[in-house]
Write a protein that binds this DNA or RNA. Structure first.
Lengths: 203, 203
DNA sequence: TTTTTATTTATGAACGACCATTCATTAAAA
DNA sequence: TTTTAATGAATGGTCGTTCATAAATAAAAA
């Protein structure tokens, strides 16, 4: 029975509670007391599992970015995948990660970068660069194949990623649009925006 | 000679310096001492011109939103304007406001809402609703005229607005793309995304 | 114009609150 | 017995804000 070590359990508890608090109230507005309260112990105990407040933030940002990256890492080099499907996978995966669990989500990712030490900030930015690279490679292949007719691939990536990332702001789980609706809409919108006239597979 | 009153001058100075600091460092991370330092006097003096820190934030957010709204208020009802031109005006105006002066811009607008009192927050949200209404009315007219072929107008508005608002994150004034480049790209991208096949006027 | 009065602008010092973090110590688990 | 988990108390710091007061400016009266 590979029972998880106690220390790992508490670490995960702290990360989980902190994540909710950071997203809801913001990093600066969340105190170590808030986190400890939510976990059911005193603030001092947090320091048995984390070096300081910043390391908690970093762990959260890094893991979340990793969750976004992992399912699409293969898309960058795999030449056998239709760029349209690649685009759809990126959009669907990112949107599901973004809108899936969290509620009342604010923009921890963007504002939180400022609260990181230069060393940790660099690590997150490296993840972002990888995300950009994956998307760009899909764009390039789509363009080379004559499917995408976009002039500025980088701007296209930024625009599409912006639509996705910002959905955190306006999306409400009980609204008129499901996550799947949004995925479908953004995919079609992006495809047309990229100059793809006829939808490939009518699925 | 309509010389400005001293009190108004200091108020504007405080607002200007605070705006820069809030955008660069974030609201919570900016102290009244920071603001006073930037203005060249002591913190206590700020309270001769503003009730408290929150009222400064509110004034900034409200004014900025007003700057975005004012130039496009006429677009909501004016039936004589081509929806394509309406769309372009919204994009161009908003982007110019967003990317124009500020640098190192973070997402004050989104995270800052949490720091407002319920009463003030309601006022800003009212402005946002007006923005949405203007965009939606342009969409509807474009759709009714058979120009836009979008199915979900609300999602379309959110997507386009997201591209614009988030450009604050990735835009750099010294980068490869000028503001005008971005305007042109987003306009074309949105137009195609909305199903407009042939560009109306080729400039 | 000068002098007096009122008003505005600016200050230093202090307040209470909360902050992240440290540390010696105890309780629990291995 | 050794390691891990949890605690209470305390530290030094920063925060927004208040307040009595001083300096500067404007208005009114002489």
């Amino acid at each position: 029975m590979p029972q998880e070590k106690e220390s790992k359990i508490q670490q995960k508890l702290i990360l989980s509670k902190s994540s909710t608090l950071f997203w809801e109230k913001g990093y600066a507005e969340t105190s170590m007391r808030d986190i400890a309260n939510e976990c059911g112990f005193r603030p001092a105990n947090i320091y048995n599992f984390f070096e300081n407040k910043e390391s908690i933030l970093f762990e959260i940002l890094f893991q979340e970015m990793e969750d976004i990256l992992t399912p699409i890492r293969n898309l960058a080099e795999d030449e056998s995948i239709d760029p349209r499907d690649g685009l759809k996978q990126v959009i669907a995966n990112h949107l599901r990660m973004t809108l899936g669990e969290k509620r009342n989500a604010k923009l921890l990712f963007d504002s939180g970068l400022n609260n990181l030490s230069p060393k940790n900030r660099k690590k997150i930015i490296k993840q972002r660069d990888e995300y950009d690279r994956i998307c760009l490679s899909i764009m390039s292949r789509g363009k080379k194949a004559g499917i995408f007719k976009c002039e500025n691939e980088r701007l296209a990536v930024y625009c599409i990623a912006s639509m996705i990332a910002r959905s955190r702001i306006w999306y409400t789980p009980d609204g008129r649009n499901s996550v799947d609706d949004i995925i479908e809409f953004m995919y079609e919108f992006s495809l047309k925006g990229l100059g793809v006239v006829k939808t490939g597979a009518k699925k």
